[in-house]
């Protein structure tokens, strides 16, 4: 008898890394796409050229300007994947797959 089932362990590890780390990352990305244009004083947003919203200069910190359509679409896609994964987890539980 194998003490460790390496195949199953490897599958759990790889799938776990993809799902378990990927979902929070997508969630964070979605939030960032929605919120990234808030303030001019966030220095690390240099990778976001979509900062040039019309009312960006006037809105300082708290007022969140509408994200550009591309960012909004990206955020919705990210959140959609997250919600889909949760739904899949629920179906898995209900179907007694454990």
């Amino acid at each position: 008898m194998n003490v460790i089932e390496w195949g199953a362990l490897g599958q759990v590890l790889v799938a776990g890394l993809i799902v378990g780390a990927g979902i929070p990352a997508l969630f964070a990305l979605g939030l960032r796409l929605l919120a990234g244009t808030t303030s001019a004083d966030a220095p690390t947003t240099q990778s976001t050229p979509a900062r040039g919203d019309a009312n960006d200069a006037s809105s300082r910190v708290v007022a969140i300007p509408r994200p550009s359509p591309a960012r909004l679409a990206g955020a919705i896609a990210c959140m959609g994947v997250v919600v889909g994964a949760i739904a899949f987890g629920l179906v898995f539980l209900v179907s007694g797959g454990h």
Binding site: L13, G22, P24, A25, R32, A35, T38, S39, T44
Partner: peptide, 24 residues
């Protein structure tokens, strides 16, 4: 396994939310 998965996930989240206001 859990440390690896949660560690990578947290690191990615921390990278991706850098500069995003904390209340958001």
């Amino acid at each position: 396994v859990a440390i690896a998965v949660a560690g990578l996930g947290t690191w990615l989240v921390a990278r991706l939310t850098r500069g995003v206001p904390q209340d958001v």
